[in-house]
Design a protein around this nucleic acid. Sequence first.
DNA 1: TAGGCCATCTGGTCCT
DNA 2: AGGACCAGATGGCCTA
Length: 322
Amino acid sequence: MLTLPFDESVVMTESQLCKKYAREKLVSHGKNIKRSPEEETEQEEEEEDKEEEDENGLPRRRGPRKKKMTKIRIERIKVRRVEANARERGRMHGLNDALDNLRKVVPCYSKTQKLSKIETLRLAKNYIWALSEILRIGKRPDLLTFVQNLCKGLSQPTTNLVAGCLQLNARSFLMGQSGDTVQHGRSPYSSIYPPYHSPELSTPPGHGSLDNYKTGKPYNYCSAYESFYESTSPECTSPQFEGPLSPPSMNYNGIFSLKQEEALDYGKNYNYGMHYCAVPGRGPLGQSSMFKLPTDSHFPYDFHLRSQSLAMQDELNAVFHN
DNA sequence: TAGGCCATCTGGTCCT
DNA sequence: AGGACCAGATGGCCTA
């Protein structure tokens, strides 16, 4: 939270400042004589040009002459301090602006629920690394690997957030980890989100109720991959999300959409901007808020009971932080 | 209430 | 001398 620059006197009154600097002066000169600041400054004004004497009353002979803390000097120091504080505030605001810009180009962005500074930097580092790996290898890795790379070293909330942004549900992670279900040689989306009529649709053991899925309709998924490698699917219409991204809702549906409002600023050359969405092809969710489960919910296995999800999150953490 | 995050102040150091 | 940068200290706010 940035605050407006404020009058320094709020923090420290002028008399406090004078006392502070006067005290420092006494300390630095090794004198223990106690005088009021008023007495000091008056006398010092007069003594400004006198020869300085040591504690024995003898003239100083060597070393740089220490300048006395006259009233004028104290004032000047105070002004410099105030100016330095203002500059420092401005510098930090600039740094925060830069961080805000960084937040907008990493995979999870919300105006209302910002990633912390450290998480933003970590995610950005992972993102750069993941993208450079894609370039180095020359082909798209499976989505699981991509997301796992993105989430390395991130806190649990951020991990959940990113995973949510990437439409990756807990089950997908677990499947990917065990390596027993993820299908290779085809689109990562089809392996993670198999089409409803796929024979692979049988409920994997230990992953709870998939009843919702059984009434499923075809789902279309688009992701960073598509926006990165291909043109975005016209069917991919990510709903605007004005609310906070938190709590990371993998617990319930794993559905997040990036706030794209700011992407307009980056406009046409925002090619790397993530555009993750999970849009039921012609299903009920297409027009509704991502947080509203339709009464005849056709959510696939994204939807879990909380107790199941909590257990999964523990496992997820193990996945992410190993 | 503890812990995380943040903004700000502050003094030190380095550089111009 | 003065500005930029940095790190430590401090206090406020928020959340689990």
